[in-house]
């Protein structure tokens, strides 16, 4: 099997998100970076499929050159190849991102053969545009469903399970196909010693992205209004129990 996973580098803010003075970005001066959680699970899913069915799994990102960190991490947990589409400065809009990824997928497939499966996250953690994967799948003429909480390959099809309001739904997409993955589908592994070495050695292939700007343009970021709160300290240690139970009673959840 040949699998491609598209991931995005995002900051990992803790208690609070601070913005730059011009409100164009998150102030990342004191922040680490990570891969969007849904995409970490997409990477794990790809590694498991390759373990089960053989083949190779490529990780791809469009982002700043620093995003090599996230590509190498993906290799350290079992991906076999990495592709960087380097961009300067601000994020690309979703139409432009999708067009650039589509064009690079075509180039990769022309060189090495088609990907049986392309995996995305359900949505990116930072932008949450809910569309890049679907746009790529459509442009390549492949079926796709989002929100996968289960994935299995058999007889030329990918079987997808997902949660809906009323219960679980299952889908069966003929390969080649694309799937958007949600966190919870698996528990991503940690890198092994061998994986770490592989991630240092892997050659990250750089491919210049090229695509036109789309119709969604960010003007500025804003922090939502925070709920003002003064905390009532009910007590310290186990002695606070009666005060907690009084409160639960008052709020009507004790009966």
């Amino acid at each position: 099997m040949r699998i491609l996973v598209c991931v995005k580098r995002v900051p990992a803010p803790g208690a609070r998100i601070n913005l730059t003075a011009d409100a164009q970005a998150i102030d990342t001066a004191h922040l680490g970076f990570t891969t969007s959680p849904h995409e970490e699970c997409a990477v794990e899913a790809a590694v498991q499929l390759v373990e089960g069915h053989g083949g190779e799994a490529t990780v791809l990102t469009l982002g700043p050159v620093e995003a090599e960190e996230q590509l190498r991490y993906a290799v350290s947990v079992g991906m076999t190849a990495a592709v960087l589409l380097p961009i300067d400065g601000a994020d690309w809009d979703p139409q432009r991102t999708a067009a650039a990824i589509t064009e690079v997928v075509r180039r990769l497939e022309a060189a090495d053969g088609p990907f049986d499966l392309i995996l995305f996250g359900n949505e990116s953690a930072d932008a949450g545009n809910f569309q890049v994967g679907i746009r790529v799948a459509h442009a390549l003429g492949r079926p796709m469903v989002n929100g996968a909480k289960g994935i299995a390959i058999s007889e030329g099809a990918v079987h997808v399970r997902r949660e809906a309001d009323a219960g679980q739904e299952t889908y069966e997409l003929p390969l080649p196909a694309a799937v958007g993955v949600k966190e919870g589908i698996n528990l991503p592994r940690y890198p092994t010693m061998k994986g770490r070495l592989a991630s240092k050695r892997v050659e990250v292939e750089r491919m210049e992205p090229d695509a036109e700007t789309g119709g969604l343009r960010m003007v500025r970021l804003q922090r939502p209004a925070e709920r003002a709160s003064t905390t009532v300290i009910l007590g310290r240690g186990p002695d606070a129990a009666p005060a907690v139970v009084d409160l639960l009673d008052e709020l009507g959840v004790l009966a």
Partner: peptide, 26 residues
């Protein structure tokens, strides 16, 4: 902790002692 400053109510202490004490009191 951020959860303490954002919450309406808080108990400062070890949850391993506080949670069973609440259950016992109920």
């Amino acid at each position: 902790a951020n959860m303490v400053s954002k919450a309406g109510y808080a108990v400062i202490g070890d949850l391993h002692a506080v949670v069973p004490a609440i259950a016992t009191e109920i």
